[in-house]
Nucleic acid binder design. Structure first.
Length: 283
DNA sequence: ATGTGTTCCTGTCCGC
DNA sequence: TGCGGACAGGAACACA
């Protein structure tokens, strides 16, 4: 799915068309995504003003004037597409609902936000804004990797008892929330850490170096508008371009990009997911 | 309590 | 071209 940088990019794309605006109409084209959609979702959204769009890990949180918050998760293939009045130049003709257009939110003024998700691993829910951080989907999430709580001390403390490989540990959203397969692979490459290394057996100094590496990779990816693989798009329909900066992800067989290394990028499977790394310079 | 494997679903790509 | 299998940015769940 969209990982943290892609979700943040989508949030930034949606903010100008949703924040401060009233939801005029909601069309629900199927009753469920990964989970059933919330009861009476269309009615509860209609007429509410969007106060603020926030992000927590890979969730977009849409705070409403009704006192409720709409939680949105894009799963693997979810997209938020913008169309309608004021979006682009050639949208006079509306809306045959496209394949996998599951929820359409129309804002006052005519902008349309369409949640499209072929695989339907995405999710939406509505909950009271007060205490939304205790929502069952959010309450076990670890710290934001770009936040102050994520530092060397924290990371060392959480990893010291883990028998699993560091790659697998970093994908655990209860440890740190927002990383996914791409950015874990890229971060471990930059930090020179072997993804197979047991998490508990990484020297403190190397963990200390890993923290800013993760922050840098995420910040660069956000700056680039995320990565556009397969069907992922920014909300404005533009493509992100961080995929051109991948050093190992999806580059099996390519020469290691580290100058002078001479190794070859390898693909292995860990906990059922592909890992890309250079066995020569990641130790 | 951690660890891994399975599962949800559709689309695409690659080899025969 | 058609068909089968592998694989895809996630993560809840069941089980060792």
């Amino acid at each position: 799915m969209p990982e943290l940088p892609e979700v943040e990019t989508v949030r930034r794309g949606l903010a100008p068309v949703m924040e401060g605006k009233v939801i005029a109409r909601v069309t629900v084209n199927r009753p469920d995504l990964r989970f059933p959609l919330p009861e009476r979702m269309a009615e509860r959204l209609t007429g509410a003003r969007v106060m603020q769009l926030r992000r927590r890990a890979k969730y977009i949180l849409c705070d409403l004037s009704s006192g409720e918050t709409l939680l949105i998760h894009l799963g693997m293939s979810g997209r938020m597409l913008l169309s309608g009045a004021g979006i682009g130049r050639f949208h006079h003709a509306p809306p045959l609902p496209g394949r996998h257009d599951h929820v359409v939110i129309e804002m006052e003024g005519g902008a349309r936000v369409t949640f499209n998700d072929a695989r339907r691993f995405g999710a939406m829910d509505l909950a009271a804004t007060a205490g939304v951080e205790d929502h069952w989907l959010l309450r076990r999430l670890g710290p934001e990797p770009l936040g102050n709580a994520f530092d060397e001390r924290y990371l060392a403390g959480r990893l010291k008892a883990r028998a699993s490989a560091v790659k697998t540990a970093l994908l655990d959203q209860t440890l740190v929330a927002g990383l996914g397969n791409i950015y874990v692979c890229e971060s471990l490459f930059r930090a020179g850490i072997d993804p197979r290394r047991p998490a508990a057996r990484i020297a403190a100094a190397r963990l200390g170096a890993l923290v800013p590496v993760i922050r840098d990779v995420l910040a660069e990816a956000i700056e680039a508008g995320g990565s556009s693989l397969r069907d992922h798009r920014r909300a404005d329909g533009e493509l992100g371009y961080f995929q051109h900066r991948f050093q190992v992800y999806d580059r099996e067989g390519a020469p290691c990009p580290r100058p002078g290394c001479g190794g070859t990028v390898r693909r292995i499977v860990q906990a059922g997911r592909s890992t890309f790394f250079c066995p020569r310079c990641q130790r």
